[in-house]
Design a protein around this nucleic acid. Structure first.
Lengths: 258, 258
DNA sequence: TAAATGTTGTTATAACAAAAACAACAAGGG
DNA sequence: CCCTTGTTGTTTTTGTTATAACAACATTTA
């Protein structure tokens, strides 16, 4: 059975990210389709040029993905998919561990020269990076953490932040609504309903989130669910002041919740 | 601090297997050494040509491994090693899962035409492949499993085989010695001490193991601890008969253990 | 204050290496 | 004798490496 060209193409790309070349992927896939195939049969199934099939098979044997018979013509078997993928992954994981150890040593001895650090505005890309940076940044909060964000975002973000925030930190949250228990000691402000002040509410959804840490640094989430999410972070006082004023403004039109 | 050229080179190779190009690896490593570095500083640390640093940084940002400041000159930060490596691994693991699913579907529909299958002699490479094939082959045993192998090998191989072998299978083992409890119902034959029959003992170490399944198929381990281990497997009656005779010969010079 | 110099960021191109693709041929089997 | 198998060499293509060139901006110097 042959699958769609798109599925085949994406499977090849996946196998390439596991360390196979295009021809290696095609030959492996062909062997999964036909046990005990000869090189000519593999050529017919995969459309890899017949002369290229032999060295590709040699490399797959070396990678322990294929076994070969002693016969004429030689016949080949592929490791079943589970085994084959696990084996390729294990090689890569071993490399990952070696890289991690070497890079951790390098990172431990890094230099972090001052470059007017406070004046820099950093762009952070990717939901995962943003979340991990948010955890790291808020974990260092000493006095106050002021948040403006939608409950949709906070609902699954706060559980990761709160355990790492010191108990005496003043936490003030402006959001569109709230469900369930409020974090202990937190002050909650609710935005007026949508039909009250349109432009500000739309602005909140567009902005997706503002986090002000100790009135000295700020992380701002830009919108973008369909494209890669982006955030800005800075310790620049001008940048932070802008968002402190933004927060104050939003607070004035919100209602403190008991 | 700069590490040895060998360590750097092997770290680069490890990062390449995680999907980075050589220049991407060098730039990432440079950024781990110097937080908040500019492109020129990265060029100086990594020796990547300055003009090449910019597109490489763009790709690293897209891979969520680097964040960038809005400043002149632009400054860059790397994701810490743990995060960076985990992130790269997760992309690859996602590809692995997609490939596994696609290939499992293909494999389910494979053809396995007869090609005088019983006459083929298969070469199996790699300790892991050999072990998994051994488990698979011996799990299908119906009547008898005859083994000649060193205790060094059996000691850590049998525990994986035994749970999958049917209870009524006759298990006969010839080995150099035995420690601990014998598998229930198994017959044990001990080879004479080394100084008695030199050549046969050396032959056992060289061969490393013979497994005869139901007197109809055989898997033979060739030696080679320092090079990649290799095994031969066949259902060819000539092949199996040879090793049945080999087993009988070894049995005659061994002593059945109570 | 203007000119000169250096830096930053970008784009285009050349060189190189690995993979893809093809050509050719010897040996063996039917 | 013809077809198949297996091998080797060569060419082409592709992606990465490496370099050259240039515009814009920032800094320094006269």
């Amino acid at each position: 059975m042959v699958e769609s060209p798109e599925t085949l193409a994406s499977t090849i790309e996946s196998l390439k990210s596991l360390g196979l070349t295009k021809y290696e992927a095609l030959v492996y896939i062909a062997l999964l389709q036909a046990e005990g195939a000869s090189a000519s049969e593999i050529h017919e199934i995969s459309t890899v040029p017949r002369a290229s099939v032999y060295p590709v098979l040699d490399r797959l044997v070396q990678k322990n993905l294929v076994s070969v018979s002693h016969s004429t013509p030689r016949r080949y078997n592929a490791a079943p998919p589970g085994e084959g993928i696990d084996r390729m992954l294990r090689y890569i994981e071993a490399d990952a561990q070696r890289a991690r150890e070497a890079l951790t040593e390098i990172y431990r001895n890094r230099t972090h020269p001052e470059h007017g650090r406070q004046e820099l505005i950093w762009t952070i890309n990717g939901e995962e990076t943003i979340r991990s940076r948010l955890v790291e940044i808020t974990a260092g909060t000493e006095h106050s953490l002021d948040i403006v964000s939608s409950y949709a975002f906070l609902g699954h973000t706060l559980p990761a932040l709160l355990p790492k925030i010191r108990e005496n930190v003043t936490l003030r949250i402006i959001t569109d609504h709230w469900e369930g228990k409020l974090p202990e000691g937190a002050e909650l402000y609710l935005l007026p309903p949508l039909d009250h002040i349109h432009s500000v509410h739309r602005k909140l959804e567009e902005t997706a989130g503002v986090f002000i840490i100790d009135q000295t640094s700020a992380l701002v989430l830009m919108g973008g669910e369909f494209i890669s999410p982006t955030a800005l972070y800075s310790e620049s006082q001008g940048f932070v002041n802008f968002f402190i004023r933004y927060w104050d403004f939003i607070e004035k039109i919100s209602k403190k919740s008991q």
